[in-house]
Design a protein around this nucleic acid. Sequence first.
DNA 1: TCCGTATTGAACT
DNA 2: AGTTCAATACGGA
Length: 180
Amino acid sequence: MKTPFVELPLKTDDGEFTTRYSETGLTELSFPITSRRRRRGDESQNSINSIESDRDSSRRLLQIKIRGWHRLTEAALKAILAGRQPNKFPPLDLAGTAFQKSVWHALRKIPVGRTKSYGEIAQAIGRPKAVRAVGGACGANPVPVLVPCHRVLAANGKIGGFSGGLERKRRLLAREGVKI
DNA sequence: TCCGTATTGAACT
DNA sequence: AGTTCAATACGGA
């Protein structure tokens, strides 16, 4: 992964997500801060929003490219939050080990409204015994929702875990029409 | 090397 | 239907 250098907020009906981009693609998507009160100087927090210098035209082009990616992220995120399959995703630039990347790749193959167990993912990547490790990789997913780790349930059909909180996982699944 | 995990299935109450 | 437990792969410290 290239080092991320742009951070952009993404407002949705579910709150304001935060996204980060490298020169290669989306590196991170984080859930809205749940804290009630919003800090006063919060807006100044966005200082990394802009690239230091616009003088260089290649940088300007990159800036434009990232804005395009951000629009794709926004559309894709909102689609999934509404329980629909996105038409298009931004390019992803995910930091992780080879094992984690293979898990995340397998997660992306689960269609909207369908689920798999941790064990099934383990099988899908050819490591049938790495069930717990699959759970670990899900928890390390830097781009939740877009890489749909919420569609992974425990083998007995129970909810399993979720870094964004079980409530959110249930809500996402419910919108996709999945009954637990 | 040791420890914690978003697991699993079997063997027990 | 709930609890305990061992097997197990991986990643971080």
